[in-house]
Design a protein around this nucleic acid. Sequence first.
DNA 1: TTGATCCGTCACCAAAACAGTTACGACATC
DNA 2: GATGTCGTAACTGTTTTGGTGACGGATCAA
Lengths: 151, 151
Amino acid sequence: MRNYRGCAMPTNTRLAVALHILSGLAYRASSGKGSVTSAELAGSVNTNPVVVRRILGELAKAGLVTSTGGRGGGYELARDPARIRLDAVLVAIEPEGLFSVHENPANRACTVSCGIKPALGQLFERADHALREHLRGTTLADFLRRVESAG
Amino acid sequence: MRNYRGCAMPTNTRLAVALHILSGLAYRASSGKGSVTSAELAGSVNTNPVVVRRILGELAKAGLVTSTGGRGGGYELARDPARIRLDAVLVAIEPEGLFSVHENPANRACTVSCGIKPALGQLFERADHALREHLRGTTLADFLRRVESAG
DNA sequence: TTGATCCGTCACCAAAACAGTTACGACATC
DNA sequence: GATGTCGTAACTGTTTTGGTGACGGATCAA
């Protein structure tokens, strides 16, 4: 599908890249190896190490990964892949939720205009919650198994 | 929250505007009046009539509204608000789903890189489905009641 | 101590999408 | 025919994203 400007949809690939990175870390952890550098991960994702480090920075802030600097340094999962639920990844990457209410000031003469914002806020909050609940049912270990069986 | 560039999140307001517009049409329908012009709706949303018409074009393609040109023309709901489920609105506005897989070519030497795309595709498809199922539980009539009680 | 890595972050660029605006043709109604 | 409305094109400005180079600071090995 194309939008009215004839361009493809936007939709971030940042969640996809985050899951790719985390799968790489989980895969490496299952092999018993130590930390992984941003350059190695960038080679797997086929992008630039800085892009990988930016996303890893958000995952680190959320407590999902840890990093060590210097020679032999890199990134590791902060805990076992079976204890990382995918809703935590979504929250780390998109902390504000997926939908947003328009900021346009309300037209005081219009009933709909005056009531729309709280109604939308409640609707979007519940929709985000439903999405997170769904993702909560899958762990990173589950996801890695699907990646390995798909390859 | 702010992202790495210090800017606010993106996230379309197009779904919010679409629900605002549809609420306006449903509200007018409940008053027994006829069609509503894009200029009237733009006054409620506080935006430009062309922005409203663009979104209404997508809703019309999805069969949710109809339009009539010429003097006295405008937009009307295609069916009763109690028979419009909000998942249909999401599909009309975001037909490709909310998430997308990165297009970077796979690194053949990497197990994760080779298996990530089908795994992400399946995960995102199921997440979108869960979200649509949630929205399916609310009709435009339900939503309008919340708008009216919130005002 | 020195050097080699590696993270963390900044600055910059190009591509893409959205919101807003003006304009104009097509069409229906009066 | 005049009026009013949709449908759409073109353009601008703002914002986000992805990609790239650069550099300081931290860490580790020799």
